[in-house]
Simulated assay, not measured.
Amino acid sequence: MAIIITDECINCGACEPECPNTAIYEGGIEWTYGGGTKLSEVDFGDGTIIKGTATMKPVSDEFYYIVSDKCTECTGFHEEPQCAAVCPVDCCVPDPDNVEDLETLQAKKAWLHGE
């Protein structure tokens, strides 16, 4: 499953540089699929294709947030999600709305990084 940042976040920013997929952003900051990945475009399979550089709306305007489409729980990089490991207030937790098995997380890593 992807990780989420709860509203207990103190906006310290410790998590952001730890993410190998560049899936963590400061509140209010737009994000891209291509940022920190090898994605030049994203095909959603329904006829919608966007450039990897297309800016997307922030998930949160107040707190750091994780883009679930880019979160692999650090699979293939680390033994555990690094955002959770460094968070001083334990607000990086599993997202029950985005449950993914190991195989799915490995496939997502390969998709993000062109492997």
Rank of each mutant, 00 (worst) to 15 (best):
M1W: 15
A2I: 03
I4F: 14
I4N: 05
I5M: 08
D7F: 15
D7V: 02
I10G: 10
I10A: 09
C12V: 00
C12Q: 04
C12G: 05
G13I: 04
G13L: 09
C15P: 03
E18D: 04
E18T: 03
C19F: 10
C19G: 01
C19Q: 03
T22D: 12
A23Y: 14
A23R: 03
I24W: 12
E26D: 08
E26L: 08
G27A: 06
G28M: 03
I29W: 13
W31L: 05
W31K: 01
W31M: 02
T32H: 12
G34M: 07
G34T: 01
G34I: 01
G35H: 08
G35P: 03
G36D: 05
G36F: 14
K38M: 11
E41S: 07
E41P: 02
V42L: 08
D43E: 11
F44V: 01
F44T: 00
G45P: 01
T48V: 10
I50P: 04
I50D: 03
K51F: 13
G52D: 10
G52E: 09
G52M: 11
G52I: 03
T53P: 02
T53H: 05
T53A: 07
A54V: 02
T55F: 15
T55H: 15
K57I: 06
P58C: 06
V59H: 04
D61V: 02
E62P: 07
F63A: 02
F63M: 01
Y64E: 05
I66R: 04
I66A: 12
I66N: 09
V67A: 06
V67Y: 10
S68L: 08
S68W: 13
D69F: 14
C71T: 01
T72E: 08
T72R: 08
T72W: 15
T75I: 06
T75Y: 14
G76Y: 15
G76P: 05
H78A: 04
E80A: 06
Q82L: 09
Q82D: 10
C83Q: 00
C83W: 07
A84S: 07
A85V: 01
A85L: 12
V86P: 10
V86T: 02
C87W: 06
C87S: 00
C87Y: 06
D90K: 08
C91T: 05
C91I: 06
C92Q: 09
V93I: 02
V93N: 08
D95P: 15
D95Q: 10
D97I: 05
N98C: 13
N98K: 10
V99T: 02
V99N: 07
V99H: 11
V99G: 09
D101G: 07
L102D: 06
L102Q: 06
L102M: 08
E103M: 11
E103W: 14
E103G: 11
L105E: 11
Q106P: 11
Q106Y: 15
A107L: 05
K109G: 12
A110H: 13
A110Q: 07
W111Y: 07
G114V: 00
G114M: 05
E115M: 10
